[in-house]
């Protein structure tokens, strides 16, 4: 019996575009257990970015329910959603989103600052996690002194450092060449082996295959049950 950490029921998201109401997510039912490595596969315009924003608590559903770690995510004040993101979600972006003026280690410390972790502990935890992703000797480097793969490793370390419930990756290999992409996927698999829960959004079926479980999203509808062999 795996622990259920995410549950969506009949989740709908609509946007008002001018006079038109556009339904982007049309009743999504999704359940994620602890330790899952879920790939959300879908073409552009399928609603997968909107789904990711809702999973990541950057946005809230129009109707339906979304429970994350047993907490109902709804239209909460922005500060409350910030706290939930900080605690529950580790974001990994296609473009890495590292702050160019800060060293790798300072970048990794960023979410800990907002979590209110004291400086000394921040340094210890960020150093430890950078070591884990294989960048022990690059901690003082700035992003522009690192390769794309190394930058994504820094971003992964930043996502891991708060020990979030879910690692939420949006096209994590989209900006990398194929070989580097493979290495990053290798790291994802290792994290999966360690028991981390990962949700990966991608349009690339080959990348999606790395997940322990794949769901497809097409035109705002999620089709569950495509399992990786």
């Amino acid at each position: 019996m795996s622990e259920k950490i995410l549950e969506m029921k009949n989740l709908v998201k609509t946007y008002i575009m001018g006079d038109e109401e556009q339904v982007v997510l049309k009743g999504i039912d999704l359940q994620i257990n602890r330790g899952d490595f879920l790939s959300v596969l879908g073409p552009s315009g399928s609603g997968k970015s909107t789904l990711m924003n809702i999973i990541g608590c950057l946005d809230v559903p129009t109707s339906g329910t979304y429970y994350l770690s047993g907490e109902l995510i709804r239209d909460l004040p922005e500060a409350a959603l910030s706290h939930i993101r900080n605690r529950e979600i580790g974001f990994i972006f296609q473009q890495f989103q590292l702050l160019p003026r800060l060293s790798a280690q300072k970048n990794v410390e960023l979410p800990l600052i907002y979590a209110g972790v004291p400086e000394k502990e921040r340094q210890q935890r960020s150093a430890h996690i950078l070591e884990r992703v294989g960048l022990a000797n690059k901690m003082k480097n700035r992003p522009n002194q690192l390769s794309g793969g190394q930058q994504q490793r820094v971003a992964i370390a930043r996502a891991l450092v708060t020990e979030p419930t879910i690692l939420l990756a949006d096209e994590p290999t989209g900006a990398l060449d194929q070989q580097t992409g493979h290495q990053i996927m290798g790291l994802f698999k290792e994290l999966y082996q360690e028991g981390k829960t990962i949700v990966m959004i991608t349009h690339d079926a080959d990348v999606a295959k790395n997940g322990s479980r794949i769901v497809r999203i097409v035109d705002g509808n999620l089709s569950e049950g495509v399992y990786n062999a």
Binding site: G56, L58, E78, A79, S82, R85, Q97, L110, A115, R158
Partner: peptide, 16 residues
């Protein structure tokens, strides 16, 4: 702008 977005995603409150 993207830095602000990132900081918010990482848990920064608007007032921070």
């Amino acid at each position: 702008t993207s830095e602000i977005g990132l900081r918010k995603a990482l848990g920064a409150e608007p007032k921070q």
